[in-house]
């Protein structure tokens, strides 16, 4: 005797899901998860007790292609990602970022600018920014107005 169960009610849905997956799988469009159409480079920022850590994905970049600077709490990363010299006609697929790029990052806290350390290994940039010691709050005297 067939008894209705909620568990079975989903089977049809799963069939549909599978069918749609199969259809999608047979199409040749850009797969999801491809890191496309987003800011280059992507940057991650982490805060630790006494420092910040910034990481960025810069595959193919070398030290000489990269320019880092810091001024007034803004860290600027810029560079040029050169592509192989290939005529556009020869491209079958082009998903990788090409050309010049720049990122200006507002730092959330004061850092010791002289203490910045950066390394670029296997296309990953890591910048360590030591936090500046807490500045003691300075009282601002308020003068009484009027005569």
């Amino acid at each position: 005797m067939p008894v209705f169960r909620w568990g079975n009610a989903w089977d049809a849905f799963r069939d549909l899901e599978r069918e749609v997956d199969r259809l999608m799988g047979s199409m040749n469009f850009t797969p999801q998860g491809v890191r496309l159409g987003r800011t280059f480079p992507a940057v991650n920022f982490y805060e630790y007790e006494d420092h910040f850590l910034l990481t960025a994905e810069l595959p193919g970049m070398t030290k000489s292609d990269l320019d880092l600077s810091i001024a007034q709490g803004v860290l600027t990363l810029k560079g040029d990602r050169r592509a192989d010299e290939v005529s556009d006609n020869n491209y079958r697929r082009s998903e990788r970022y090409r050309g010049q790029w720049q990122r200006n990052l507002n730092l959330p806290d004061r850092v010791i600018e002289e203490g910045l350390k950066a390394e670029l290994v296997n296309g990953l940039l890591k910048i360590t920014l030591p936090k500046a010691p807490e500045v003691t709050p300075r009282q601002i005297p308020i003068q009484e107005g009027g005569e």
Binding site: P31, Q32, G33, V34, R35, L36, A83, D84, V86, N90, Y91, R92, R93, S94, E95, R96, Y97
Partner: peptide
């Protein structure tokens, strides 16, 4: 993740 790729033709073949 799916890494971004380029595919192009060269004298050596596909790259």
């Amino acid at each position: 993740f799916t890494p971004p790729i380029d595919i192009y033709e060269s004298e050596e073949g596909l790259v």
